[in-house]
């Protein structure tokens, strides 16, 4: 069934978009990630302009993160103080991100920067995750226990000023790295249309040493806050949030996520992480191929504001 998207200004097959939302939702439920990094590329590759794809996925991430966070909230697995600091930093970051986004659109370099960022971050994170999970799978096979990090080993971070106590996470750390992480994720998230969970979660675990039980719920709160502000700014500055597209994606996404989460509970954690790593790498490689292979059409048309024509 074809439905006309009022902001993207083109008709799309509603079931195709719904299917994409559901498929990405399924994967995000399975792996416990937001799925923005899959959804935005899928939309771009299916012909929706990068600007609309990024902005509309931003709104979709708010829905899927909020849906997922309810469970953690009921189980009290959220450090609201830490999330609050992250959200404040994230809002600053997404303001910067949307401003960069607007500027790049005008100069016609948005697609390029989005592609480069995807290649860099997906390649890096996917590679690290794959390496880590393969190593631990091998370790488990050989019967060796996974190497544990010694508690209280904080390194360089311990020396930074402006310390704050986070009771729920049992942390007493400087807020500088927290703010840096929040701002960084905010910029990336709003520019690329991703929640940034696949970067935020490892960052919180490895840099701040947030307990793993609390990290997911807390990062979801950060994503809701940051992405909500990014939606507002994208909509106000670039008028590129397609409400109809976002709604179809949201409904597909939240339904798919339920089934994914059910399957995820039955698959081993290490295997799951290796699969996610391969998926992340595959998307990154797809962007890389696009960047380096000779395009069929060298020319492109766009309005002065940067809308593709």
């Amino acid at each position: 069934m074809q439905i006309y998207l009022p902001i993207a200004e083109l008709p799309v097959n509603m079931f195709l978009i719904f299917g994409m939302g559901a498929a990405v939702g399924f994967l995000s439920g399975l792996f416990g990630v937001g799925g923005g990094f899959l959804l935005t590329p899928l939309l771009i590759f299916s012909g929706i302009s990068p600007a609309v794809a990024v902005a509309s996925t931003t709104a979709q991430v708010v829905a899927s993160s909020f849906s997922a966070s309810l469970t953690y909230w009921r189980r009290k697995l959220i450090d609201f103080k830490l999330a609050g600091v992250l959200v404040v930093a994230g809002i600053v970051g997404s303001t910067i991100g949307v401003a960069i986004f607007t500027l790049l659109r005008r100069t016609g370099q948005l697609d390029l920067i989005i592609s480069i960022c995807y290649v860099t971050f997906l390649g890096l994170v996917g590679g690290l995750m794959l390496w880590e999970s393969v190593r631990s799978i091998i370790n488990t096979r050989r019967g060796r226990p996974a190497p544990l990090r010694r508690p209280g080993q904080h390194g360089w971070m311990h020396g930074l000023p402006f310390k704050m106590r986070f009771k729920r996470s049992k942390l007493y750390v400087s807020i500088i790295p927290i703010l840096a992480i929040g701002v960084g994720i905010g910029i990336l998230g709003s520019m690329l249309g991703i929640g940034g969970g696949f970067i935020l979660v490892p960052a919180l675990i490895y840099i701040l040493r947030v307990p793993t039980s609390i990290v997911v719920g807390t990062s979801l709160i950060q994503m809701i806050g940051t992405m909500a502000v990014a939606t507002l700014l994208q909509s106000g500055n670039n008028h590129s949030v397609d409400g109809v597209l976002a709604l179809i994606l949201m409904v597909g996404g939240v339904i798919g996520a339920q089934f994914g989460a059910r399957l995820g509970a039955r698959v081993g954690g290490e295997q799951l992480r290796a699969m996610l790593a391969l998926l992340v790498l595959a998307v990154g490689i797809r962007f890389l191929v696009n960047l380096v292979s000779t395009p069929d059409e060298l020319f492109s048309l766009a309005t002065l504001a940067g809308d593709a024509r």
Partner: peptide, 9 residues
């Protein structure tokens, strides 16, 4: 759009 997202979620 944000309200819609929160409601759906």
């Amino acid at each position: 759009c944000i309200a819609l997202a929160l409601l759906t979620g």
